[in-house]
């Protein structure tokens, strides 16, 4: 009898904590169903429909939208622009942020002063720093008037050959401190003893850098590469604010196209299949980069 009572009590108590658990996760579950699962599925469905948002009829068109995206020259122009962005952005930001991290790792005095100094740019809002760089790098802006003293002016945002590179450069400004701190955390997790034994073996600084530092920074490299690739596929605010996609479509990006197709031209189905293709391409890039760069590191 006593035992049965204890058992019932135990079950009741368990049921009670389960109920509490469900109660606590309920807002999240409901919210996710409404604002995540439902839009997610809907996005998949309208990608197969022809629909202009205003009219009530949504015609099922199969893979038509996807085929039209692939045949759209602007899709390929945007793709090319993003690749160009990545080719400039990724090496440049890695060199800058790794150099900062290596230097910060060497100093003791004023380290946190410099670290927060380099991080300041990270908190600037997209719209604000786009305005600032647009004016600074304008044809008759301050930078060109300084360069004018040595006889050159650079049409940063108005030459289609370099406009995207200029945008990549200002994004480097924003993110190098952020990536620098990630590298710094990686550097500090490398055991000092490895360098000490390399020193005893007579390895030069150069050898130590390539044989110890770079391989053991692999996790930081992965994170930064993944961040940088995702960022590249999502570039929007800077070209929208500075160049509007021009000159000659040289700064069009995927997100600008999706925005334009859906919210100016009202092709919701087309925009949706565009977005799905972009997501697939960015997943592929991240996957390939991980496969190429990721190494299993172990030491100790």
């Amino acid at each position: 009898m006593q035992m049965l009572k204890r058992l019932i009590h135990g079950i009741q108590k368990r049921r009670f904590t389960e109920l509490v658990g469900y109660g606590l996760v309920a807002p999240y579950v409901i919210y996710s169903l409404v604002f995540w699962v439902y839009p997610f599925l809907w996005g998949l469905i309208i990608a197969f429909k022809k629909w202009n948002i205003i009219s009530p009829d949504k015609e099922f068109v199969g893979l038509d939208n996807f085929i039209r995206v692939i045949q759209d020259p602007l899709f390929w122009i945007s793709f090319k622009n993003i690749l160009f962005f990545m080719i400039v952005y990724i090496p440049l930001v890695i060199i800058c942020s790794l150099s900062v991290a290596l230097m910060l790792n060497r100093i003791k005095i004023l380290r946190s002063f410099f670290a927060s100094g380099y991080l300041m740019s990270y908190v600037s809002a997209g719209v604000a720093y786009s305005i600032v760089f647009n004016l600074l790098f304008a044809g008759d802006g301050l930078i060109n008037s300084w360069l004018g003293h040595v006889g050159i002016t650079i049409p940063w945002f108005s030459d289609p050959r370099i406009a995207m590179a200029s945008i990549a450069m200002i994004v480097v400004w924003k993110f190098m401190g952020y990536y620098g701190l990630i590298f710094l955390a990686g550097l500090q997790s490398i055991p000092k003893s490895l360098y000490e034994s390399a020193e005893i073996d007579g390895a030069s600084n150069w050898t130590q850098f390539w044989r110890i530092t770079i391989p053991l920074l692999n996790p930081s490299f992965i994170i930064i590469l993944v961040f940088a690739v995702m960022l590249s596929f999502n570039v929007f605010t800077e070209p929208y604010m500075i160049t509007g996609g021009g000159p000659l479509d040289s700064t069009q990006t995927f997100v600008m196209q999706i925005y334009h197709q859906t919210f100016t031209a009202l092709h919701a189905g087309y925009g949706s299949s565009f977005a799905i293709l972009v997501a697939i391409i960015s997943f592929t890039f991240v996957f390939v980069i991980r496969k190429m760069v990721e190494r299993d590191i172990s030491y100790g």
Binding site: W36, Y38, P39, F40, W42, G43, M230, N234, T262, A275
Partner: peptide, 14 residues
């Protein structure tokens, strides 16, 4: 895992 760009349009419709 999923990028925001996938949700822009359907969330707008919602």
């Amino acid at each position: 895992l999923f990028p925001v760009v996938l949700f822009l349009i359907p969330r707008f419709l919602l």
